[in-house]
């Protein structure tokens, strides 16, 4: 018989599901803004590998001539993005959830092993645990990217009042490049994230919605009845 295992804190699920659509609006409005000055590209030896973005891309997503609209949405939803992110970080610190994400010295090499395993280049599966090493690095990394977006965003939003921040980040144009690069990073994160969610299957996805996962009952359930306890944040703190 299977048993229920609590996996994701209610608050963390809320922050996650609020962040998704808010970040989507930020990326969309950011691209409306970027269109009006879009010089970035990746090139090697004079050969352009990737141009951000080709005309067909703007046309396909209706991103042309929308600077004022983009700014208006960007500077409205920035509050939601920042508030949700700051609340998440504060909650994670307060609840002790950060301990489950904390990488250690061995995390980078283990993350590599996970990646090799997922690419079927390595047999050994990662050791069991709530988050594997690759997840820890990704999730800590993407939160760090969020902080980076906030800081680089402030640096290009108020470059005179916050001139010291803009200077620390390498100046106005450098901060803009970083702000853009982080957005590309979210795109890459999203692709891998969705791929892994699909791979991991329904039980895993459901746990991000309900908080619980069905686990094969390899041992007597600790409380006998298996009835789910309400997700009290501090109670999970030490797990």
């Amino acid at each position: 018989m299977a048993r229920l295992e609590h996996k994701h804190l209610r608050a963390v699920r809320y922050f996650h599901w609020v962040n998704g659509p808010v970040l989507l609006v930020m990326v969309w409005s950011g691209m409306l803004i970027y269109w009006s000055y879009d010089p970035y590209q990746i090139s090697a030896g004079g050969f352009v590998l990737v141009k951000f973005f080709p005309d067909w891309f703007y046309r396909a997503l209706d991103l042309e001539n929308g600077l004022a609209t983009g700014l208006a949405y960007h500077f409205a939803f920035m509050w939601l993005f920042a508030l949700n992110g700051l609340l998440y970080v504060a909650y994670t610190l307060w609840s002790g959830h950060w301990r489950e994400l904390r990488p250690d010295r061995r995390t980078p090499i283990e993350a590599l092993h996970v990646a090799l395993h997922d690419l079927r280049l390595r047999k050994e599966p990662p050791p069991p645990g709530k988050f594997n090493a690759a997840q820890k690095l990704s999730y800590v990394g993407v939160v760090g990217m969020g902080a980076g977006s906030l800081l680089t965003g402030l640096a290009i939003y108020k470059p005179t009042q916050l001139w010291w921040l803009t200077s620390v980040l390498g100046g106005y144009q450098t901060a803009r490049v970083l702000h853009f690069a982080l957005t590309i990073g979210y795109g890459l994160f999203f692709v891998v994230h969705i791929g892994q969610v699909v791979r991991a299957g329904w039980n895993n996805f459901r746990s991000m919605v309900t908080g619980y996962e069905l686990a094969p009952d390899t041992q007597e359930a600790p409380h006998g009845t298996n009835s789910p306890a309400p997700a009290g944040p501090p109670a999970r703190a030490a797990s």
Binding site: M1, A2, R3, L4, V209, T210, P228
Partner: peptide, 24 residues
């Protein structure tokens, strides 16, 4: 077959969570 309380519980939780999620 004995009813699986865990499966029932996750079913309940899933219906409730997806309802709340759908409304949200």
């Amino acid at each position: 077959p004995p009813r699986d309380p865990a499966a029932e519980a996750i079913g309940r939780l899933t219906r409730r969570a997806f309802l709340v999620g759908g409304v949200a």
